[in-house]
Structures are given as structure tokens and as C-alpha cells.
Write a protein that binds this DNA or RNA. Structure first.
Length: 261
DNA sequence: AATCAATTCAACCGCAGGGCC
DNA sequence: AGGCCCTGCGGTTGAATTGAT
């Protein structure tokens, strides 16, 4: 065998980490194919990318997730399913791998009882939610998201009313719910929804789902707009990016079973 | 102290999607 | 249109660590 071609596997050494970090600092992220050559590493590009993204990248937060992070994780997973990269985007400093590992450790299989306890303690509203893989989703033409990608206070709903709690139950307070109301999804998806309606499987947005969406809007998205920091909503910054909204289909989330409420 | 079981998490693998030719 | 290449993602594996006996 040619030793030059033999790729190393397994745990990374400090020397390898150092070489990779130096290389990326010099040439920048991306071009992963060239990274092993430039860094003088006998690692495949995937391995280099993974090591950087999950371990060496600056600002990576290590250690146990905080209560807030766990709460957010639970809510986002309820909405997005196993879309770890999207979920991680909402948890600054956390990697998709971290989130996935945490979920698999704490909320799957081996300890079903404890999982149920945690879920019930933290999510008293829902008992059974059908999580379906998100599909592309479109906003109504009048949606503020389409009237200039970035929300401004002039296109957002009555935020002062939200803060005052005076209209907390009104759908008008949340542009996402507004969008759902006036959905103009592509024909294919409308057809499938129509079929569901015909079957009587689902007829309306449940209160639970509406609450969940509203809470995401009020607690997570709206405050970013409220501070007037426009850069906080730039694409890809912390997860509410183009990808999120193009991949995310609230309709799927809303296809909940009757037992929900 | 030694052994075994359980748990954690870094890393690998295979696949899908997008861009380019 | 189709093939190739690259990147990114999610599922899975297995080594390392921790806890129990």
C-alpha cells in the first residue's frame, strides 16, 4: 500500500488540530478538498470539515445545555423534527452534532420513562404531535416576509400590542399565523391538504400549534426586531434564515391529531 | 482494585441536493 | 438533459469515560 495515500481515521491529535486550525486561519473555510493538502494532513476532506465544524471552530460552546437551551430544543424539535442543523442554528455556539447527541442521549429509546417525564414537565400542552419532515413553504403575497425579506416595524404586526399582552390571542399579532391564514402554497401541496381535509383528518389549526408558533414569534423572533438591530436578522446569522423559511412548512406542523388539546 | 455495564460524544458513512460543464 | 463533483446533513458506530458492583 502507498503510505502517502493511506488516510488516517479516528481521534484527532493536538498536532492535527493545530495544522487544521492554522490552515483554515490562513485560507479560510470552504474548499475542503484542498484543506488536507494545504494543511499537510492525512485526513479526508469530510473528516477535516467535521473536525472544524464540531470542535475547532471559534465560539463553540461546550458543556451541558442550559435549561433555556433545552426548552428551545424541545420546541424546535417539535416543529422541525430531526433537522439538527436548523435547530443548532437557533442555539448559538451549539453544533448540530451536539444537539443530535444530546437528543439521542436524553430523549430517545433507552430511557423512555425519563423522556416522557421531561417532555410532560416541559410541554404540558401537547401529548401527541405528528412531526412530518418539512417541505418547501410559501408565504402569501401580502406576507411581510415577501415585502422585503427583512421585517421592519412598519411591516410587522402591532408589536406594542403584543408586548402589552392585549392581543396575545389574536392571529393578527403573528405574521406567520397570518401567512397560514392566507396561504398560497403551490398546487401540489394544496391538493394534498385538500385531500386531508376531505378525509376529515384535520380541519383547522389547533390552539396548541398556534400557541407554539406564536411563542416562537413573540419570544424569539420579535425581540430581535424590537431591538432595532437589523443585522440580527441577516440571513444565516442565527437560524431564522432563508433556508429556515424555505424549508419550513408550518402546515405539516399543524397536521396534528385530535388528542392534542 | 478489578471488572463489567451503561453512557457519552467524536467521528465515520452514505445519501441528497446544488452547481458546473 | 445528464453526468460529475463538491458540500452538507442525518443516522450510526465505536472508543473513551463514568458508574456500579
Amino acid at each position: 500500500m502507498d503510505r502517502q495515500l493511506a488516510l488516517r481515521k479516528g481521534t484527532w491529535t493536538k498536532e492535527e488540530d493545530h495544522l487544521l486550525r492554522q490552515c483554515i486561519e490562513k485560507y479560510g473555510e470552504g474548499k475542503w478538498r484542498q484543506i488536507p493538502l494545504r494543511a499537510g494532513l492525512r485526513r479526508c476532506r469530510k473528516s477535516c470539515r467535521l473536525r472544524w465544524l464540531n470542535y475547532l471552530r471559534p465560539n463553540i460552546k461546550r458543556g451541558e445545555l442550559t435549561q433555556d437551551e433545552v426548552d428551545l430544543l424541545l420546541r424546535l424539535h417539535k416543529l422541525l423534527g430531526n433537522r439538527w442543523s436548523l435547530i443548532a442554528g437557533r442555539l448559538p455556539g451549539r453544533t448540530a452534532n451536539d444537539i443530535k447527541n444530546y437528543w439521542n442521549t436524553h430523549f430517545t429509546g433507552k430511557t423512555p420513562a425519563s423522556k416522557q417525564e421531561v417532555m410532560e414537565a416541559r410541554s404540558p400542552v401537547s401529548k401527541k404531535v405528528e412531526v412530518i419532515k418539512p417541505r418547501p413553504w410559501t408565504f402569501p403575497k401580502s406576507s411581510p416576509w415577501l415585502l422585503g425579506r427583512r421585517l421592519s416595524t412598519s411591516t410587522s404586526p402591532d408589536l406594542s400590542a403584543i408586548n402589552a399582552g392585549t392581543t396575545s390571542n389574536s392571529r393578527e399579532t403573528c405574521p406567520i399565523l397570518l401567512s397560514i391564514q392566507g396561504d398560497t402554497r403551490v398546487e401540489q401541496e394544496s391538493d394534498s391538504l385538500d385531500k386531508e381535509l376531505e378525509k376529515g383528518k384535520t380541519g383547522c389549526i389547533s390552539e396548541c400549534a398556534e400557541d407554539l408558533i406564536r411563542s416562537l414569534w413573540v419570544e424569539d423572533l420579535q425581540p430581535m426586531i424590537e431591538v432595532g438591530n437589523e443585522t440580527s436578522l441577516e440571513e444565516g446569522s442565527i437560524g431564522w434564515n432563508d433556508d429556515f423559511f424555505s424549508d419550513f412548512n408550518f402546515w405539516d406542523t399543524l397536521l396534528v391529531e385530535e388528542e392534542l388539546v
